[in-house]
Design a protein around this nucleic acid. Structure first.
Lengths: 241, 241
DNA sequence: GCCGGTCTGTCGCCTGCGCGACAATCGGCG
DNA sequence: CGCCGATTGTCGCGCAGGCGACAGACCGGC
């Protein structure tokens, strides 16, 4: 198992030899750009880890509108809800670029976990974290105007992909405005307008398919109330007793 | 422990004597109407079970707007997220009517659970269920018009509180339109309008502080796409009377 | 039966944002 | 180095729904 896959929150804290047992159950799977991994309603196959490429989890309405719930990068694991409750997939999953995955079949995962019950608290914490994120999204949608959602999103993107560059922190990832729009559940044109506003405020600079954050503090100002929600998304490793 | 509290999904499937061990750790707490149990950001005290009365979990914006995330009825347990991850409360909790709770302190719960690791899968499933609910709410907010959200909500309320009456299924619970509005994250007047529309469509009849579903199928039609999400909707365990 | 608080119906204004349309750029690939 | 698909800027229409303002209906308690 590539060690980057065990360096993330899912497995990083666990003893290496324990993770190794699990890794032996995994097999690999390759996806072409845009290929569907699963669709909402599918029966779960297992837990997925991204080795290379990317996987977008999306929700879509019958009328064609869609939102991007998450984008999983190399090192991320996903598919845990169906893993733990065995029920249908909630989202549609598509490869973004040629992608290689590690797949741990549901049954193997559970056999492994059964022999390591001490790991359960760890996984319940993972689930709680997802739950808090989802609740934060609900609040953001209900309470925050688009401007704040965009600003907040850029902040988290900057943290995840930020790389210092000439005139600020470059979000080093292909980020067309309509992807950003689907991430904040909005239309492309509206996002374009908000980006212009942020640029006028001196918080960012927009380039072709890219965004550079020139002033994090100013961006934080624009996010406003969203920060209160951001705090919820940042879960301290609280002792579970 | 009143047996109504162990009849719900949280503990119903578990061996009675195991639940009994836990029950002995619980203590009681009374709240007056409208009293706050906890606020967002508070450190968690434990897991709560509603013995009598009701508890509303709400989220509110600084500007005063607020939504009702859930209403817990007698027999329901809540507060599990903070229980499992130890972090701050996400919502504000208020008693609706004079309320009596059973409180299981966090530490006691975990001591108990540690001696029954076989129960972990059960609790991860509970968390997954909440997560699915939250994801369903996100989709409903993004994709569905208010009319569908109202119709869908009435359907779940009818399932939970429905009682046959002269001209249909009475939702037997104090349900002013502005409560309904806060449940679907909308304004009171808009909900009023939608209710009128549903009435005109012959799906419901609105009374003072009450709603009677006269035609479930017609109501389902109005909910439309929401039914796809319906499986994800929150159904408060029916109040046990 | 009366009163005050709670609910509902309705009208109207206003704003945020979806969405179509199109022109202007950009940039990778042949 | 030029073409074409991808991306962006912008204008404008349309509308769902937020919100204030009342007026009227209801109801439980006294």
């Amino acid at each position: 198992m590539p060690h980057r896959l065990v360096r993330n929150e899912w497995f990083a804290e666990l003893p290496p030899e324990v993770v190794e047992q699990l890794a032996q159950r995994a097999h690999r799977r390759k996806l072409a750009d845009g290929q569907m991994l699963y669709a909402r309603g599918d029966a779960p196959q297992g837990l997925y880890g991204v080795v290379s490429g990317r996987v977008e989890l999306r929700a879509s309405a019958p009328d064609g509108r869609e939102i991007v719930a998450t984008v999983h990068e190399p090192g991320n694991w996903f598919g845990e809800v169906s893993l733990f409750d065995g029920a249908q997939r909630v989202h549609d999953a598509f490869a973004d670029g040629a992608t290689e995955l590690l797949v741990i079949p549901t049954a193997d995962f559970h056999r492994w976990l059964a022999t390591h019950p001490e790991l359960y608290p760890h996984f319940t914490r993972m689930l709680c974290r997802k739950l808090r994120l989802a609740l934060g999204v609900v609040e953001a949608l209900v309470f925050l105007p688009l401007s704040a959602r965009v600003a907040a999103r850029l902040l988290t993107l900057a943290e995840a992909y930020g790389r210092p560059s000439a005139d600020g922190l470059l979000i080093d990832r292909h980020l067309p405005q309509d992807l950003l729009a689907r991430m904040v559940a909005a239309g492309r044109q509206a996002v374009s307008r908000e980006l212009k506003a942020l640029e006028a405020a001196g918080a960012i600079r927009v380039a072709y398919g890219k965004v550079v954050v020139t002033d994090m503090d100013r961006l934080r100002e624009q996010a406003g109330d969203a920060l209160r929600l951001a705090a919820l998304q940042d879960i301290p490793a609280a002792p579970q007793r």
